[in-house]
């Protein structure tokens, strides 16, 4: 890692782009999910699209976590330690799962190889399959659009893939690579102190997209945090069906919007709380 950053030609640039694009990817997926949620685009017939998308979000978070831990610097080492202990706290299968994840009783060089395999083998495969499914479903059901009550009948709004759509995509691509290069130049990825299993640093922090779990963990007990986070993940994936249940219970009011608002505000609050203090 040190060699890539400091010795190999353009290593810092490649790493910068890799790192910054991971941040952007997480941010983009989260924003996309929020947009879809509040426009109700997950509702029939797009339940499966949502579920696959939610799984994509989890996989992307997995990417972020394993990638960060692979740095094997002080902060990420202790982040992985915390995550390992969280896994251990899962009822019944926890200890076995944690052992499997860490390749032993604690975080070590073995963990690095396992995380590496996750990061470059298992997670990409999962991501491709899920994304494939997601896109297939999108093609199948079409992109959902706002339909306002007073809007005239839908026009046929297709346009040719080449050159129009391709050019848009290329344009976005160039803009993004430009942005990433700028970020890599202005905020090059550093490398913290090497992991030291004996001394925990004074302040450990995960990547920003895990701030909320970190703060949640500080405020609640270990097993409660694990269970609640697991439940939250389950609800996220299964929301279209939960929503259907809710609308049956209260047909007049859209409870989902309210719950979503509370959830987003809660996440935002937890994240900000962690970021600021």
């Amino acid at each position: 890692m040190k060699a890539i950053t400091e010795e190999v030609a353009f290593g810092w640039w490649i790493r910068g782009i890799h790192r910054w694009s991971s941040h952007l990817m997480v941010a983009a997926v989260i924003l996309h999910a929020i947009r879809v949620f509040f426009t109700g685009a997950y509702r029939a017939p797009r339940e499966l699209t949502w579920a696959s998308g939610a799984l994509v979000l989890l996989v992307v978070l997995g990417f972020g976590f394993t990638g960060y831990s692979l740095l094997y610097e002080q902060l990420s080492y202790w982040g992985a330690t915390v995550a390992g202990n969280l896994t251990e706290a899962v009822p019944l299968v926890g200890p076995t799962l944690a052992r499997l994840l860490r390749g032993g009783g604690g975080i070590s060089e073995n963990t690095v190889t396992r995380f590496f395999v996750l990061h470059i083998g298992i997670l990409p495969t999962a991501l491709f399959l899920l994304l494939g499914l997601h896109l297939l479903l999108v093609r199948l059901h079409g992109v959902s659009e706002f339909v306002f009550r007073d809007e005239a009948e839908k026009r046929e709004r297709t346009f040719p893939f080449f050159p129009d759509h391709l050019l848009t995509e290329v344009g976005i691509g160039v803009a993004l690579t430009f942005l990433l290069t700028c970020l890599a130049c202005i905020f090059p990825p550093g490398l913290g102190e090497r992991a030291d299993p004996v001394h925990a640093p004074a302040h450990i922090k995960p990547e920003w997209y895990f701030y909320f779990t970190f703060r949640w963990l500080k405020w609640t007990g270990l097993s409660f945090a694990v269970l609640s986070l697991g439940l939250a993940a389950f609800l996220l994936v299964a929301w279209p069906w939960v929503d259907r249940l809710l609308s049956r219970l209260s047909p007049k009011r859209d409870l989902s919007i309210g719950i979503g608002l509370v959830a987003v505000l809660a996440l935002l609050g937890l994240t900000l709380r962690e970021a600021l203090g």
Partner: peptide, 24 residues
Amino acid sequence: AKKIVVALLSVLFLLSLLVVAWIE
């Protein structure tokens, strides 16, 4: 218009890459 925008963006990208070469 799209063509022009994309071409300008690539020029910007190229410039940022020159900065990369300079830092390197």
